[in-house]
């Protein structure tokens, strides 16, 4: 079974995703695929909190910041994978490790009318992410994907940020289509947009 979990930040998405992956694994191998590359102490604190949260749950941690499909080779096909998060994965795929400079910021314009708002997707980064995610969807026994809902505020962002938002949304829509279950968390409460447990 494949599950997409979205919602605003600080809603308990990771905690809920851990419980979901644990349940789906039924005692078999389960992997926490950490995508974030820590940049400062705040990031490191956050990572340590997440490590403590799953300490006694029996997850094996895989650190995969790009080329997300490689977690299948690292672990084998029969595992349950928790990918946390798509948000960080795309960031790593769009920006280089060292200087975080934007790659292909302008992106490629979509066919007219297929996109909401004014941003354009970074097609190459989106394609790289989707290629890896497809592999997980096809090969993993179960997969749980965590993403962030960053689409409902009254801000006119710069082109780089708009490009990132449009790209993340394209991946979210792909996963929502492919997954059996799509859940939005709000203040820890959940809304099932598709499927259910």
């Amino acid at each position: 079974m494949n599950v997409l979990i979205s919602g605003g930040c600080k809603n308990g998405k990771t905690g809920f995703a851990l419980k979901t992956a644990d349940r789906l694994a039924c005692g078999k191998n389960k992997y926490y695929v950490a995508t974030m590359i820590p940049c400062d102490d705040e990031d490191r604190d956050r990572i340590n909190r997440h490590i403590a949260e799953r300490a006694d749950m029996g997850f094996k941690t895989l650190e995969v910041s790009r080329n997300i499909g490689s977690c299948i080779e690292m672990a084998g096909e029969n595992g349950t994978f928790l990918i946390d998060s798509i948000t960080a994965l795309l960031l790593n795929e769009m920006f280089s490790f060292n200087n975080r400079e934007a790659e292909n910021v302008e992106g490629t314009k979509n066919d007219e009318g297929t996109e909401d708002s004014n941003g354009t997707e970074n097609n190459e980064a989106v394609a790289r992410c989707i290629r890896g995610l497809k592999k997980i969807l096809e090969k993993a026994r179960n997969a749980v994907f965590v993403t962030d809902y960053i689409y409902s505020d009254a801000v006119r962002y710069d082109a780089v940020t708009e490009n990132y938002r449009a790209s993340l949304a394209a991946i979210d829509r792909f996963l929502a289509k492919e997954c059996d279950v799509v859940i939005e968390l709000c203040a820890g409460a959940r809304f099932e947009h598709k499927g259910g447990f």
Partner: peptide, 13 residues
């Protein structure tokens, strides 16, 4: 209604 890039127009079409 829906957030940016959620596929509102595609849905309506």
């Amino acid at each position: 209604i829906g957030g940016a890039y959620q596929g509102k127009l595609e849905y309506a079409k």
